[in-house]
């Protein structure tokens, strides 16, 4: 499984993780990530973990995300991300499927 593979790589070095990231990203990933630092959940590769820093988007979407546990400071693990289409993440012990557009609204803290 690829996510297990990327996860193992993450343990070795940060630069390798970025390689994995770039491979995991599809044509839809935002050009803002040109410096390879993920800015949103959508840009994280499967198997990696990020910490939510903030939420963007309308009130309806953000309150739903908050109730599901995507609050600033929450740790999110990516279970599945093919670089396009919906993805699966784990937040507060629960698997949540997110559309790409929605995942892009969840900002990730820079490490």
């Amino acid at each position: 499984m690829r996510w297990a593979w990327t996860w193992r790589r993450r343990c070795f070095s940060v630069s390798e993780e970025r390689n994995g990231l770039r491979r995991g990203m599809g044509p839809q990933s935002s050009p803002a990530s040109a410096d390879d630092v993920p800015r949103s959940l959508a840009e994280l590769a499967a198997g990696t973990t990020g910490v939510v820093s903030s939420l963007r988007g309308g009130r309806g979407l953000t309150t739903r995300l908050l109730a599901l546990g995507f609050t600033p400071g929450a740790e999110v693990t990516i279970m599945q991300n093919r670089g396009r289409g919906a993805m699966i993440v784990m937040v507060r012990g629960v698997r949540v499927a997110l559309g790409r557009g929605q995942a892009a609204k969840v900002e990730i803290a820079a490490r």
């Binding site: 979407l61 599901l68 919906a86 699966i88 949540v96 499927a97 997110l98 559309g99 929605q102």
Partner: peptide
């Protein structure tokens, strides 16, 4: 596009 947020239960 419709927002897609859904829990995947165990």
């Amino acid at each position: 596009r419709t927002a897609f947020i859904m829990e995947l239960p165990l």
